[in-house]
Design a binder for these strands. Structure first.
Lengths: 255, 255
DNA sequence: CAACATTCGAGAGCACTGCTCTTGCATTTC
DNA sequence: GAAATGCAAGAGCAGTGCTCTCGAATGTTG
């Protein structure tokens, strides 16, 4: 689910770059265009009806072509979903990156808050896409390797804050002196591979808990588990989420 | 999503009670039995193939009856899913209640830990049922009111700990002196309705963050988002989860 | 006990899905 | 220009949820 942090920068450049090769022949041009159209219509259907209702036949109908013709461009429904998943990860990643880039580099809490808010805003604006990537996986489906790099973008942003927080030397004593159990330290080995050796076990641990907390809070709200828990009046959900952000920031020592 | 805490006890008694009325006539007997069989087979299919693949026709086939006959007992696929959702909530609730009941009443951290561990264990043992209740909701589906009471059981357990922690008077100063923003306090009004007036805003807030954290941690693990983040060797995931429990407990002041 | 009413099971059928295969046509390449 | 390739369309298979009708079994009532 994660790609080494050092490689993430490369990914970001690659994905934000426009189409790498302009198609030469007319056939290739048409192919690229129709593929794009199929993905656009699929994205539209996904946004309005959700992933379970996404139908290749309906897409073909919308495009005025036979259902069998779509299979020239998309291998299967699963493959289409995979493309939409990658697209969603990138869209979310770009939103988070753009929000974080707007904050002052030295303002760690500002960067942290920007990321969290961007993730929540994106999720609310794209509920079905969020459910596609962070909701219950479809039982048979296995995420292909192409999805892990786009899926690491938000994690990479959060991680960089932990690195910067460590480098700043302003971490509170309760964190720098905190120790995690040897077993947990061992369990964190894959994440350490991603983060690098600059960040302490304790901070990695707190950062991951904050990350899963962010994910839990957004999912809880989006999946309707907050009904009769948090008010739904204007600004109420936002006020609550602000509190969450503050708590997570405190937890990783940047508040 | 929540039922007033005071009513939860009633619910618990109701749901654990065996079938309230033994059917008299042969027809009613047969009807109850066949309904039971349908639900059993559905539960089995749910466990093995997941909710999206749950098919009324397949259930009918397994039971050796025509697919149309199933509709005499189950109004629709949605209604069947609703029954399974309620069943799952109750199963999870019972597991959590049983685990919590095994702990000493005065051992708040023990009760807290028992609940968290029970929730995770149940989720791992019943991934598809967990996904059914806490995963992405199906777009068209709206949860009927019958689901909210069973869905409140775990929350009720956690809430009782907060009540007991407040009553014990052993809460750390950083919590008793903590204040939440007026906006957030306002947003917490529905949850306060559930919790009662004994628990402070600050503790309610921390408790809810812990709750969403628990949900996020379990979902993250179950939905495969922890690949390459936490090791998958024996005991690694458990060690990590222990750390989460400790952190949440610290957060609500019972560590 | 007979007549009526209700319930039930089964089959056919509709509209939909993912996906495959063949057939004819257009385009590209040699 | 001929051969190879790419493409669109249609038919078809197996599956889905759900509805309707039609006999048969089981209730209840006169």
């Amino acid at each position: 689910m994660l790609l080494p942090l050092s490689e993430c920068e490369t990914i970001r450049v690659m994905t934000t770059e426009t189409e790498k090769s302009i198609p030469r022949t007319a056939r290739e041009r048409a192919r690229a265009e129709i593929t794009r159209e199929i993905l656009d219509v699929a994205l539209h259907h996904l946004a309005t009806d959700g992933a379970p209702a996404l139908s290749l036949r309906a897409i073909a109908r919308d495009l005025g072509m036979a259902s069998s013709a779509v299979y020239r461009y998309v291998a299967s429904r699963d493959e289409l979903l995979t493309r939409l998943i990658i697209d969603a990860y990138n869209s979310l990643g770009e939103a988070a990156e753009a929000a974080e880039a707007r904050a002052d580099r030295s303002d760690l809490i500002g960067r942290w808050s920007a990321i969290c808010t961007a993730v929540r805003s994106w999720a609310i604006a794209n509920p079905n896409r969020y459910a596609l990537i962070y909701g219950s996986p479809v039982p048979g489906y296995v995420a292909p390797p192409d999805t892990i790099a786009p899926g690491s973008r938000v994690a990479a942003l959060l991680t960089r804050i932990l690195v910067d927080a460590t480098a700043s030397g302003h971490l509170p004593a309760e964190i720098t002196s905190d120790l995690v159990s040897p077993a947990a330290s061992e369990a964190l080995a894959p994440l350490r591979e991603f983060v690098g050796s600059d960040v302490s076990d304790a901070l990695i641990q707190r950062g991951l808990i904050a990350w899963t907390g962010l994910y839990g809070a957004v999912s809880f709200e989006l999946f309707g588990q907050l009904h009769n828990v948090i008010g739904e009046g204007p600004g109420e959900r936002e006020a609550w989420f602000e509190e969450c952000i503050r708590r997570w920031a405190t937890q990783v020592g940047i508040a």
